[in-house]
């Protein structure tokens, strides 16, 4: 099993990577620091698991070389669990990528990172409800301080692939979504 860290540019994937593996990769406060992937190892329930820091991507329909690398990484590692890191203050945009990955049949754990920023911006997110609708673990994290990491790691082994139809149903719009398509 491998773990892929995916998400938009500048949502804190590299901070995640550093926290989880203890290896040092660059963290910068601007998008696009990681243009190549970085590998590291982390302990997961007594087992060494490979963790890959994938370059930031907005979507799997790639437009630049960093995104191209991201899609390749995903396709080459079919047996991976994907930790999808979202900017919690911009959930909708992040969900787009998360859904794309779920649709491709990967088991996903969603990290709502920069949780502290949502408080600054007065944004309320119902994590439990989001988890119920998506059917995959959703964890609120603040990577810089380390909040939520223990919970995140404990969820990695629990997650499983989810059918997108089920998410549509959970969101309460089965028929209308099918019709609009």
């Amino acid at each position: 099993m491998k773990i892929l860290l995916m998400g938009h540019p500048n949502v804190g994937k590299s901070v995640f990577f550093n926290r989880l593996t203890g290896t040092k990769v660059f963290e910068s406060n601007y998008p696009g620091t990681t243009v190549d992937f970085t590998k590291g190892w982390m302990r997961l329930e007594g087992e060494d698991v490979e963790l890959i820091d994938v370059p930031g991507a907005f979507s799997l329909e790639w437009k630049d070389q960093a995104e191209e690398v991201a899609v390749k990484m995903l396709e080459e590692n079919r047996d991976s669990v994907v930790v999808c890191v979202l900017d919690a203050s911009k959930v909708e945009r992040g969900l787009y990528l998360a859904l794309e990955i779920i649709e491709r049949g990967y088991p996903v754990v969603v990290a709502l990172n920069m949780w502290d920023v949502t408080k600054d911006k007065n944004i309320g997110i119902d994590v439990e409800k989001l988890e119920r609708i998506l059917g995959v673990p959703v964890v609120a994290t603040t990577a810089i301080s380390g909040e939520g990491f223990k919970e995140l790691v404990s969820k990695i082994k629990e997650t499983a692939p989810v059918k997108i139809e089920k998410i549509i149903k959970n969101a309460g719009g089965g028929e209308s979504a099918a019709v609009s398509g």
Partner: peptide, 22 residues
């Protein structure tokens, strides 16, 4: 089966309406 771009945004809209409050 993968969704189209519009369907995906539709779904996200529905999800966020139920879970996110600005």
């Amino acid at each position: 089966m993968p969704l189209s771009v519009d369907e995906r945004w539709d779904l996200i809209d529905r999800i966020s309406k139920q879970t996110v409050e600005f």
